[in-house]
């Protein structure tokens, strides 16, 4: 019977591929860059730029990331 791979198995496979082929770091950068770009746009739209800190703090208190 064919064994099912776990999430940790996939982490191992990818780490080994990356070790042999650093070109895969390009995919890694694409994921990170797109996450940061999306987050920047979402929160700029949500909180504006005039009172960003105050608006962001209200949100952070609501999600209990700050007291």
């Amino acid at each position: 019977m064919k064994e099912t791979l776990t999430d940790l198995d996939y982490v191992s496979i990818y780490a080994n591929k990356l070790k042999e082929n650093p070109d895969l770091f390009k995919q890694h950068a694409e994921l990170i860059d797109s996450q940061i770009k999306a987050s920047k746009e979402i929160f700029k739209k949500k909180f504006g730029t005039r009172n960003f800190n105050e608006n962001a703090r209200k949100y952070l208190r609501a999600i209990q990331l700050i007291k």
């Binding site: 990356l18 070790k19 082929n21 650093p22 770091f25 890694h28 950068a29 990170i32 860059d33 940061i36």
Partner: peptide, 17 residues
């Protein structure tokens, strides 16, 4: 993907955001 030079790990990639 990396090398060790004088006890510093060098990761072979460009900087991301």
């Amino acid at each position: 993907g990396y090398s060790l030079v004088e006890n510093t790990i060098i990761i072979k990639r460009e900087l991301n955001s």
